[in-house]
Write a protein that binds this DNA or RNA. Sequence first.
DNA 1: AGAGAGTCATTAGCTTGCTAATGAAACCGT
DNA 2: ACGGTTTCATTAGCAAGCTAATGACTCTCT
Lengths: 147, 147
Amino acid sequence: MEEFLTLFTRTHKLLAAASDEAMGRHGVRIGQNLILEALWETDGLTPGEVAARARLPITTPTIVNTATRMEAAGLLTRRRDPNDGRLVRLYLTDRARAAQQPIQEARRRLEEHATATLTDEERDHLRTALLKVIQQLGADQAGPSGG
Amino acid sequence: MEEFLTLFTRTHKLLAAASDEAMGRHGVRIGQNLILEALWETDGLTPGEVAARARLPITTPTIVNTATRMEAAGLLTRRRDPNDGRLVRLYLTDRARAAQQPIQEARRRLEEHATATLTDEERDHLRTALLKVIQQLGADQAGPSGG
DNA sequence: AGAGAGTCATTAGCTTGCTAATGAAACCGT
DNA sequence: ACGGTTTCATTAGCAAGCTAATGACTCTCT
């Protein structure tokens, strides 16, 4: 059967493609969203801090690489921390800050559109089910042997 | 809020990681699953045919690249079609065929585990909701301007 | 039969994600 | 103050996915 694994992958693929396309209209790629969200909230974070605060688990090397592309795209600048030479701080450009509203709005609309054919009740069920799956699988990672 | 996009991504990430780990114990990576499934059912397909038959939309270049890695890993062999020199046919090795049962079983168990805390009803709801989202987003791709 | 059009697989080049290995800087204990 | 440890970012190298460009082969039409 393998219903669920396939269904999840299909859903994710469609959502990711739609999301990337929507964000692309504002000069941003999907992988940059986590960094933007973190820096919109708190500018000047380090790559490690961004990784720690992001809403999804993401590794520091991924942040670093994506930040490099964003720097090339004129979305952020790097500056060494004057008090601790190990740290690098990421600062958004005006352009990145200007994109906040449109991008967040676009993502909100995408969510609405994707779940447009669900009733409110179905939407609640879906959210609950997703949370349960996340909790179940997340528990394994945290400590498969523990309690 | 952006609840759903985040929840979907998290779920997908956890499922993909768990799946890759489960398959890894049988010498197979997650990206190879689509090709294996297609060839388990019908051996000797071409890359284009695998892409067309796979349960998820996937492009031919991805099939070709993954097939190259699988060839290196001793999971399949390439042979030019004797009747049409443009075609390349992919044939599974014994090793790949031997892995079918364990891998399918592992993926089935993973599905069960991931949805273990859901009631039967919740599972049905989840499946329904996923299908609705897929249908809604899939409709855009097919023809956004149409009906 | 030969030329042009069509159909394949492949390659090139990109993004996003990962783990492991590096290298620089700061900190801590002596 | 200095050596070892720890804490950072970065680099290296891989998998998986995509689109666009190539190149080989077949087919079709004259």
